[in-house]
Design a binder for these strands. Structure first.
Lengths: 191, 191
DNA sequence: AGTCTTTTTTAACATTTGTAAAAGGAATCT
DNA sequence: AGATTCCTTTTACAAATGTTAAAAAAGACT
């Protein structure tokens, strides 16, 4: 990992302060990854062994459902992305990670990270807090999916991520919202 | 906590072995709670400060959406229940926990538990793993909600929890599935 | 500029689910 | 047993979303 990647530790510091030795240990299991637009960062079918921090660019997790490409999530600059249903179980993931722009990531080896947990309780604590926060987001998303109309979810999405529309094809936004492109077009036509 | 409550530590042992001192420390922050059928174990509007283990009986988390009672989740014997969106944030929960049968719980004080994390890294690790598994379940549930029809979700639910139908009013099952009672009735009428 | 491909919108029709009201059943209480 | 309340189903109609196909718009490539 190169020296100007402090954005990662800035991100971590929201959750847990780390002493220099712990930061050093994490740095050693990180690597910089550059991926052009519309390429797979991680293909479907492999066990997730890397947690990515998005330094620049934008990506999505996706999978195929009845032959259709479904976007599960988007990840913007300064956020982490991983396929936790594989990361925490060791089961090969049915999901892939694909860039939507030319992007730069910091990849953190998860087996190496989990080994650091024994040596540095503060690192275990850091990632515990990170995933607890992600868990809370997921719980809240269920409520949003189940009890808001597609139109409400669309409005919420663009309110929370205004540049999504500029940066992501509508077809991915539609599948993320759980509706068809046609249905999204109808919603958009109202305004 | 009384002496025959080893079901809790049996449950924990799936995730993480604990040495006797750690078990002892957890025991000290637990208490037995008996609640009759159809009562609130935890009311809506309070910050979640207790994680419950269901020793006997059955309960649900619920909240009100536009005046309607919505069931977010069910918890059977030998499982944990908490309102994580409050537990991990300190924000008062919009959700309550209600019994559906006469039930017995072990309540674990979460502030006391979080204090134990400093003293016993193995306890922090135990709950890290517990909530990681719960997080994975939640991620998988999103896929189920978004890309299966209500009919598929109903069939999955009764396949995975066959006694749910015997133990829970259909109105709660309907709201859990994200549909109306009428719609659930229509689905059931097909068989 | 022109061609090719991909993305987005529009249209017509089918299906699913919601809403409101009523009726039928089941459980509870005295 | 009778009354009351709650739960579940049924019916009729409305609204939202899906499906399929075609047209329009935008982007990519020579």
């Amino acid at each position: 990992m190169n020296s100007e990647s402090n954005s990662l530790f800035d991100y971590f510091s929201q959750f847990q302060k780390l002493n220099p030795k712990a930061e050093e240990a994490i740095s050693e299991i990180c690597s910089d990854v550059h991926v052009p637009k519309n390429r797979d960062l991680q293909p479907i079918g492999h066990t997730c062994r890397t947690i990515y921090f998005v330094k620049k660019g934008l990506c999505r997790t996706y999978y195929y459902k009845d032959g259709l490409d479904i976007t599960e999530s988007f990840a913007f600059e300064n956020s982490l992305i991983a396929r936790v249903e594989s990361l925490f179980t060791g089961i090969p993931s049915k999901k892939g990670i694909q860039t939507l722009e030319n992007s730069e990531f910091i990849g953190i080896s998860s087996p190496a990270l989990f080994d650091l947990y024994d040596q540095f309780p503060e690192i275990e604590r850091l990632f515990r807090k990170i995933f607890e926060a992600a868990y809370v987001d997921t719980v809240n998303r269920i409520e949003s999916i189940q009890f808001h109309t597609a139109e409400e979810r669309y409005k919420d999405l663009i309110r929370n991520s205004p540049d999504l529309l500029q940066r992501v094809p509508l077809k991915h936004i539609a599948s993320y919202l759980g509706i068809t492109q046609v249905s999204l077009s109808r919603i958009r036509a109202k305004y």
